[in-house]
Design a protein around this nucleic acid. Structure first.
Length: 599
RNA sequence: GGCGGCGUAGCUCAGCUGGUUAGAGCGUCGGACUCAUAACCCGAAGGUCGGUGGUUCGAGCCCACCCGCCGCUACCA
């Protein structure tokens, strides 16, 4: 009997809607979270993978001003762009939404009101810088000036890159806005703060229990707690969610600070998903259920939000307000898989210097699976790594194509040409059994790797298993047996096809598009990893938006060894991966140079 | 400045709580095979594990110091 499906929340970071996403972004939160989600779906677990675009706050406003568009236009544009990028890459969100929906606003305001009612939000005055041009808050990172300590002329508002000292923007000599060069004004204003110190002990206790977290995440988080301070959760802006508290609600020019509403997105998108399924209470099975597993994926710069701030908010919400409805506390994160950073040709990705490769551009020229392969096999899982075109071409040609692609091709070609169907096997030899047992064992070892966030090791093990099948093929040489002992050839090809069928499943979390092709070539029907779709959602206020989703419950396939049956009709084989010519490297490097020169 | 990480074969990296001749993939060289996208298979060469000094019967793994590289430092994954 199958075990009860586990409720798994997969929570990839919310990308910020102020610029196109590049390879580094999806290497951090995208491909690993999708591999994790797809694996759990194959295991038969109930996965809910939710995210969306983070659309409020200053960076969107700055982008809008720069492009001469409204804030909403910029948000719309990038929301649509990200959805399309992620669809093409095959990131199987159950609901990829956005923060400018009515639903998100309601959930955020409920959260805010509830924390306020529980005494977790306090009012403080704060010295804040304003842009004289727009009248809005100017975040510290948009201010530069001369460092009062070392005299470095381009110190940032929060820190001097030259001497490394932490700074307060008001101390800068000749402060100026990085956006338009004007001199910021400093004014005392009242803001609401999240009382983080109130939660320090509870958080410390909770983090200490999690000795399964990656050490850098755990140590870094514990360190943060030692110096924890209240954080403002309101800003002087006119772009963002209204503050549902007396004295603030009426103020046109105060809104909820963007980071506060962004993390609530995990919850609001779950609620949105539930409503769309016709069972508005369904989200509670993930959020108000001790047995559920919540896994978050983000880059290392975002750790603080996922191990300290969001957990503090969840703790403060307690049994909740309107949405929590007294039905139990909200689940805290179980895993926080923080990635390190991906570099590009030896340097950091930089949008401003146009040292970047955007997802959309990449996918215009290359297939998604080789990219997914690269981002897992050479991704920044435990330390910074580098994307280079030479390495991409090599991994594509010499690893994924030569090993896995070629295995599929050689076994299917042989079987299709000589039998046309999955051949009827005779008695299996010890070698046959050993091969199938070895591949079958992969479901457990690779599954364990994936569950523990060791995607790199999981994929390496899958590749090793593919090698064992290649070796088996070479040893058994069915192409020769066909002429001398056709029955034995049938058995060998049967065994090889079963192994390929199993490997197809094992590779699905990483290479869903090509696994779907293998699935079809082997004569199976249905979607192993079907298309992702956009679906329109209309809210009560009449506004509409599109989400990225998919019909994952109809997907066939399960995380267990193949039971491929003799007699199943095979399709004419076709190649899974395109061989890339070495000239690609020089072309792409030239393209990057042009882009950088134009910037 | 604070904190953290990294430095192991040509390249990218594994090496868990210290224990026989330090591993993998790719690359290179040689061979075999010829079903397969000149792919696949076998074999070989190649490293004083950044440096110095300790602890230990024994250290790539622990400690100290040093050199080099990198990241985070609270709105760039």
């Amino acid at each position: 009997m199958a075990p009860t499906p586990k409720k798994i929340l997969v929570a990839p970071a919310w990308p910020y809607a102020a610029g196109h996403r590049h390879l580094g972004h999806v290497a951090g939160f995208g491909v690993p979270s999708d591999a994790f989600a797809r694996y759990h779906r194959l295991k038969g677990n109930d996965v809910l993978m939710v995210s969306g675009t983070d659309e409020h706050g200053t960076p969107v406003m700055v982008a809008a001003d720069g492009e001469g568009k409204s804030y909403a236009e910029v948000a719309d544009y990038y929301n649509a762009a990200f959805r399309e990028d992620f669809r093409r890459l095959g990131l199987s969100y159950d609901c990829f939404s956005r923060t400018t929906t009515l639903n998100h606003e309601r959930v955020t305001q409920d959260f805010f009101k509830t924390l306020y009612a529980h005494g977790a939000i306090v009012e403080q005055t704060q010295m804040v810088s304003f842009s004289p041009t727009t009248g809005h808050t100017l975040p510290d990172r948009y201010i530069e000036g001369t460092c009062p300590i070392c005299g470095y002329p381009e110190a940032r508002g929060d820190q001097c890159d030259n001497c490394g000292n932490q700074l307060d923007p008001i101390d800068l000599v000749n402060p100026r806005s990085k956006i338009d060069g004007t001199t910021p004004e400093f004014r005392e204003t009242k803001h609401l703060f999240l009382d983080l110190p109130k939660f320090a002990d509870a958080l410390r206790h909770w983090i200490q229990k999690h000795d399964d977290w990656r050490p850098n995440v755990r140590n870094f988080s514990l360190r943060l707690l030692d110096e924890i301070r209240s954080r403002p959760i309101t800003r002087d802006l006119d772009w963002g969610i209204r503050i549902p508290v007396p004295g603030y609600a009426e103020d046109e020019n105060k809104r909820i600070y963007v980071w506060f509403d962004a993390v609530i997105g995990y919850l609001s998108a779950s609620i949105e998903w539930a409503a769309a399924t016709g069972d508005p209470e369904a989200w509670r099975d993930w959020w108000q259920n001790d047995e559920s597993l919540h896994s978050y994926f983000q880059g290392k710069d975002n750790v603080v939000f996922h191990t300290v701030i969001w957990p503090a908010m969840l703790l403060g919400y307690e049994q909740g307000g309107e949405y929590g409805a007294g039905k139990g506390p909200l689940q805290l994160p179980d895993n926080v898989f923080a990635s390190e950073f991906l570099g590009l040709e030896g340097k950091q990705f930089s949008t401003s210097r146009q040292h970047s490769i955007y997802i959309r551009d990449f996918l215009d020229r290359y297939d998604p699976d080789p990219l997914r392969y690269y981002l897992i096999a050479a991704g920044p899982e435990t330390q910074d790594t580098d994307f280079t075109w030479a390495e991409f071409v090599r991994r594509n040609n010499d690893e994924v194509l030569a090993n896995w692609g070629n295995l599929v091709n050689r076994t299917l070609t042989s079987a299709h040409r000589n039998f046309g169907v999955v051949p009827e096997p005779g008695e299996l030899t010890a070698e046959d059994g050993a091969l199938l047992d070895g591949v079958a064992g992969g479901f457990e070892t690779i599954g364990e790797h994936i569950e523990n966030g060791r995607f790199r090791a999981a994929l390496a093990e899958a590749m090793r298993l593919a090698s064992t099948v290649n070796t088996y093929m070479s040893d058994q040489a069915p192409w020769a047996l066909v002429k001398t002992d056709k029955d034995r050839a049938a058995t060998v090809l049967f065994v090889a096809l079963r192994a390929v069928d199993s490997l197809k499943t094992i590779f699905t979390p990483f290479l869903p598009h090509t696994s779907q092709v293998v699935h079809e070539l082997l004569g199976h029907e249905g979607y192993l990893a079907g298309p992702l779709v956009f679906r329109e959602v209309e809210e009560e206020d009449g506004r509409k938006h599109e989400i990225l989703t998919g019909d994952y419950r109809s997907w066939v396939g399960s995380w267990e060894p193949s039971d491929l049956q003799p007699g199943q009709t095979l399709q004419e084989p076709r190649q899974l991966f395109k061989k890339l010519d070495d000239s690609v490297v020089e072309e792409e490097l030239a393209r990057m140079r042009e882009a950088a020169d134009a910037a």
